[in-house]
Design a protein around this nucleic acid. Structure first.
Lengths: 224, 224
DNA sequence: CTTGACACAGAACAGGCGTTCGGTTATCAT
DNA sequence: ATGATAACCGAACGCCTGTTCTGTGTCAAG
């Protein structure tokens, strides 16, 4: 019996071909040939595979370089995207100042870095001046940040309401991560955990904003 | 006159070939053929290109799939490009079951995905069966996981002590993320936040482990 | 000077691989 | 019934492409 597609949309077999191309590309680092597609999809004739590839191309899901071996590529997502290399400047912990990179710092020569896909980065923080810190200790726990977490920061001296910032309270000799709110009589540092009380800082008290938190990454690595 | 290489290291021509392969790959999304390399590098014989490619392969700068058209790939610098594409299967929230991908699921054709650099992945969880869920609501707050966070999970039906797991408590109709500990009389589900009390589950009560949490990602996106 | 390693050229061979074309079967509207 | 169309098969054709083999000129060591 025949398939029931009748010219509109994408059928099961089209999908299977797309899946195969993607996984083959992933595994072999180059696209499959028409005959390899046919073998995987139980299509005995190369002309039928060609027939389907033509349709996929018309649907805009595939690009083809005719006459070139394996000259096809999936056109939707860009699997080989770019990523940012963010330098890990050190650790952040209560009672210690926050290390800040010098302006001429080159992330590619840094010893310790983390790679972040640009597709993961919020908004337009794609600038290259980002830096990362590893959290040490449980002191940030009211910011929903655990021991060992990696926080990615964008250097900043001021912040808008609702942004999470890294602040240095010099009189308390304390480093902390909190949501930042400006109020009439000073600043409110709101923990991320809503069950916890905010810290109120008067205008007279010193408060240095060191950076805005852009992202938090927690790796769950346990034992062996 | 001849080139002056004499068997050791990489010469000017090797470098030109590597550069060409890289730029050709960027432009065409697939590697060049031997003859195309020859044309660009002013090498009239395919055997000479092959000769150079062999050397590059011996140097470990190139990999080749013999007999396969354009079956070569640069192996050296991968500061950019080595990432996992993890499908976002849906949301996780209290009172809802956890969506689990079918075994034949292909992440590369998924509509919603997140890209994670393999360098960020813990241990050897580099398998392709990972999936991601977006946290909805504050119910996971005692697991140090906030509304909007992305959790990356590895499918699992059982866990070892100390691992963070996604569990489905069918009698309480509740989904939750907790650290897992097996004890004499049942299981202890320990919140990540040490100021909070654990949940004790008796052996008689139903407890379904759905997956182990491998990573948590929090994007701090605020206003515009 | 001889020898051998090295860096090439060129041609021929053999598979790989996309393309094309003539047929076949099933479904469906006319 | 009949023609149109979609979904196939198989084989042949021919370019694409990697491989291999023979040969040539250079250069340094013995």
């Amino acid at each position: 019996m025949m398939m029931v597609r009748k010219s509109k949309g994408i059928g099961e077999r089209h999908q299977k071909i797309l899946d195969f191309i993607a996984s083959y590309q992933r595994e072999h680092k180059h696209p499959p040939s028409i005959r390899e597609i046919g073998e995987y999809c139980d299509i005995s004739s190369t002309s039928v595979v060609n027939y389907y590839l033509d349709q996929l191309e018309k649907e805009g899901l595939l690009e083809r370089d005719r006459k070139i071996s394996r000259g096809m590529r999936l056109v939707n997502n860009s699997p080989l995207g770019d990523m940012l290399r963010v330098p890990v400047m050190g650790v952040i912990q209560a009672g210690e100042p926050i290390p800040i990179p010098p302006s001429d710092f080159n992330p590619f020569t840094a010893e310790d870095t983390v790679d972040i896909a640009t597709s993961l980065m919020p908004s337009k923080e794609k600038g290259k001046d980002l830096f990362a810190l590893q959290v040490q200790g449980d002191s940030m726990i009211d910011a929903m940040i655990n021991d060992g977490d990696i926080v990615i920061l964008k250097p900043a001296q001021e912040a808008r309401n609702g942004e999470m910032v890294a602040v240095w309270l010099s009189d308390k000799n304390e480093t902390t991560l909190k949501y930042f709110y400006k109020e009439k009589d000073g600043y409110r540092l709101q923990p991320a955990n809503p069950t916890m009380k905010p810290i109120m800082v008067k205008k007279s008290e010193p408060l240095e904003i060191k950076g805005k938190v852009v992202m938090v990454i927690r790796k769950m690595e346990r034992m062996n």
